[in-house]
Amino acid sequence: MSTAPAIRVNNLYRYFGQLKAVNGISFEIPHGSVCGFVGANGAGKTTTMRILASLDYPTMGVAEICGINVVHHPEEVRRLIGWMPDHFGNYEHMTVVEYLDFYARAFGYSGKERKTRVQEVMEFTDLVPLADRFSNKLSKGMTQRLCLGRSLLHDPQVLIMDEPAAGLDPKARVELKHLIRVLAQEGKTIFISSHILSELGEMCDSLLFVNGGRIVHHGDSESLKLGTDSNGGMLYDVQIIGDPQAVSDWCVVNPHVEFVESRKQGGRIRIETSEPERAAEILARMVKDGLKVVEFHKEQRNLEDAFIDMLGRIDRGEGAIPTDTKPEQPAFTPPDLPN
């Protein structure tokens, strides 16, 4: 295996006319890790992924898979990657086994090797019972498994998955998550985009947040969950005996505390600072004021909160959370695309 990272992107730009779909992003993903790619619709996720899959080309910048430039050597890159798009059509009059058989042939397998490989992939993705079903009659979950199977046929080192969980029911989502976990254990590098952040947090070693074509965060999910909000505050879960309304009433008359949302036995409050002394002080004051507190603990933010908070911070012009990677070159304005 080469010493180069599995995926390396440096100062990547992709413009569509005036639209800056990707606006100078840089990141690296080491071999064998699972990286989640998060962003709102139109943030530039699919464009970046398509460039990495050699299906699109950058206006400027470098994109490499295992040290191979996707623009200069697309054929080599295609042998290394498995691509799972967010949407694709299935063929009429073609069964699941025929579908995989076709792609196995297209990847260069023949004879017994082809049959063995198709069987292996069908077993892995649990498609054996569906082998003779027409591929266009499958449910969304089955279709995604079929697509994953197809992308695994040539044993790629890097899997690029664009919204693989979109439109899946909870059961299919759990199945897909399981498959991704197994693949990660086998050492495959997985670059996955999704809107379901909680699931990404469970699966991924690192998360890349992209907004407006720029990376706004690159790090693990725990650092995001434990971090303070954009104003430096912390969330706490407070549960009391008695009327839960008492918590919100208490917050109204006390400074430095804000009531966020009510819960069955109390509510979620925000303390303006992350200092533990201040939290202890507030807890003591609550007890002193007669609230029968039975639970008071720091609450981790979920990833959705962190993401929304981060976007809010950017909207207010306060800058993003610093990323883990630093671009090798300063950002620059690329020239107009030839048209």
Binding site: G111, D126, L179
Partner: peptide, 23 residues
């Protein structure tokens, strides 16, 4: 759901053509 891992069988460089359809 299968729990088995997927064995790696990389595409052959030039394998035998066992069937007519392989041609």
């Amino acid at each position: 759901m299968s729990t088995a891992s997927i064995p790696a069988t990389p595409p052959p460089a030039g394998s035998s053509l066992d069937e007519f359809s392989d041609k």
